[in-house]
Amino acid sequence: MGHQDVLNRLTEVFQELSDEDDVVLVDVTTADDVPGWDSVFHVKFIIAIEQAFKVRFAASEINAANNVGELAAMIEGKLTHA
């Protein structure tokens, strides 16, 4: 799965969870850019990502990504090492 594939899948997971079909996640997107991406949503989103990609984040990784690009890179790393 390439970087853009991961971004696309992340967008799908995001849209399904939030019912915001217009939001498209790109590398520079941060939580602050998206209305409704609060701390509760963040928990749901991380768990939904784990379930969708069948990966697990370590405690140290939960808040490590500064934007969607870094999050996608983290997932890619897990997928290639799986």
């Binding site: 928990v43 991380i46 768990i47 697990r56 984040f57 370590a58 405690a59 939960i62």
Partner: peptide, 9 residues
């Protein structure tokens, strides 16, 4: 434990 410490699940 991971999700408990991270998210209090």
């Amino acid at each position: 434990p991971v999700r408990y410490f991270a998210f209090k699940l």
